[in-house]
């Protein structure tokens, strides 16, 4: 899966949590929690959705790596290439 496709999935799942926002329009290095007003329950929902959709289990200690869109795409791309 290309990074472009991953980014699209990340943005779709963020949109599911924050439907009134436009995740595609925020910067790649912005903290999505701040930019889209996502709380801990929302973020857990995001992680859960990525797990379900991409079969990538993000452990809690790695949450911080997915706080930006760029970080999330890099992380997911790496994890899918090399399943741990």
């Amino acid at each position: 899966m290309t990074k472009g496709a991953l980014q699209k999935i990340v943005e779709e799942e963020l949109k599911n949590i924050a439907p009134e926002t436009s995740p595609a329009d925020i910067g790649s290095d912005e903290d999505v929690r701040e930019a889209l007003d996502i709380d801990s329950m929302g973020f857990l929902t995001f992680i859960t959705a990525l797990h379900r959709r991409l079969n990538v289990d993000v452990p809690e200690k790695d949450y911080a790596k997915l706080f930006t869109k760029r970080g999330a795409v890099e992380y997911l791309s790496r994890k899918r290439a090399k399943p741990s």
């Binding site: 801990s40 329950m41 857990l44 859960t48 797990h51 289990d57 809690e60």
Partner: peptide, 9 residues
């Protein structure tokens, strides 16, 4: 797995 995790709340 994420869907089983607990929050501090």
């Amino acid at each position: 797995t994420p869907d089983e995790r607990l929050l501090p709340a």
